[in-house]
Design a protein around this nucleic acid. Structure first.
Lengths: 208, 208
DNA sequence: CATTCTCTGTTTACGGTGTAAACATTTAAT
DNA sequence: ATTAAATGTTTACACCGTAAACAGAGAATG
């Protein structure tokens, strides 16, 4: 991957691009919106280029190929999630309160960034090494969840299958997010906030 | 959709195709396996044709296009699920026992047909009318779940948000299935059977 | 200053894709 | 025997991801 991250030169931050934000970021943001709205495979590199106002091949100066562009979107999403988790884990309260707050934080992040969610978690990558790299990155977020679960179990002094409990929580988060995001337009949720609380309470009840 | 379901003629069941199963079914089965193994978008119509031993355009005599072929795979999966649900709902026992048995049945179906599951539930369709038709068909399966939930609530004489409870169960089923199917190769689940029971018990506990 | 080098963009070209259109053949109906 | 329908094939086209070659704009070096 010897490409695109050599911005170590001197002082030439902007140049006369149509905006001053770096083209690399503009590509990622535009691609995320298009992928979320029309689907990864339906969006061509030519279309992304046209949307931005550059030639299709310009994108390849910043991302090795279309799949790496998708991976980079996922990486950014996971990075933000991990950042939120690490911040939330430092808030005061019992271990159970913190764990629940973490879950709530992630669900809220997904709901307020549906495009990030759709592209990162509802787009299937073609099987291969790139898809495996995405899984590996996702494990870093799961590590935070496992840690929270382990702490809760220790605080209560009980033995639990940490991996299983963490998986159940992950599954609940995804179920909640995908349900609320994909059906928000066609099904009028009576009370999403209550549904959130209900699910979070359910999957963490064993630590009460 | 005026194509491919006019098999109302007289007695010509086989002809001299390489097998006697109808080409339409052979296409669907082959496509499902390829889609599951390599991803919907990565599999070309040419490849499906080559695998079967017919020309790519022969497929279009049975399915309007690639998307309709995918939809037909989903339809078959949903049809089987609904059939299983209707059969299970007629088994004896309390309403709660029956509901739990239904969930168990569906999870087991998914685990024993991972290719059906991957293609039907882990493949994102490009947004559009065909994708909406799939959602509509899925609702017929959800109807069975909603009915089971309503019966449990009535049997216990409590008020519940039927839609919410059904969604939670659906979400649990998908979380369970996708976790067990996608990680079955890289993560050695200590006890999938226990995890299943645990999750099913958790999401139906309110009806005890 | 001139020269060279590195970035970052463009244009062109190639093999693969979904599928419309036209044609061919095999089977059923008259 | 003749017609009509069903079911296949071949050809053709527009679009796709992207490799390769080229172009210019600063920065680095003399």
């Amino acid at each position: 991957m010897p490409v695109a991250q050599k911005r170590v030169s001197t002082t030439r931050p902007t140049k006369s691009r149509r905006t001053q934000i770096p083209l690399r970021d503009q590509i990622r943001d535009t691609a995320r919106d298009l992928f979320a709205r029309e689907g990864y495979e339906s969006v061509s590199m030519r279309r992304i280029g046209a949307e931005i106002g550059c030639s299709p091949m310009a994108i390849y100066r910043h991302y090795e190929n279309k799949e790496e562009l998708l991976l980079s979107i996922c990486e950014e999403t996971f990075g933000r999630m991990i950042q939120l988790l690490d911040k939330t884990r430092q808030t005061p309260g019992t271990r159970l309160e913190v764990l629940r707050r973490c879950v709530q934080t992630i669900v809220d992040f997904h709901l307020s960034h549906p495009n990030h969610y759709k592209v990162t978690f509802m787009t299937v990558m073609p099987p291969g090494p790139v898809a495996e790299r995405k899984v590996a990155i996702g494990q870093h977020a799961m590590d935070r969840l496992r840690l929270g679960v382990r702490e809760c179990a220790e605080a209560k002094g009980i033995e639990v299958d940490v991996e299983m409990a963490a998986q159940i929580i992950r599954v609940a988060i995804h179920g909640l997010a995908s349900s609320l995001i994909t059906t928000s337009k066609c099904y009028p949720w009576k009370d999403p906030q209550r549904m959130k609380e209900e699910v979070i309470a359910t999957v963490t009840r064993q630590f009460e």
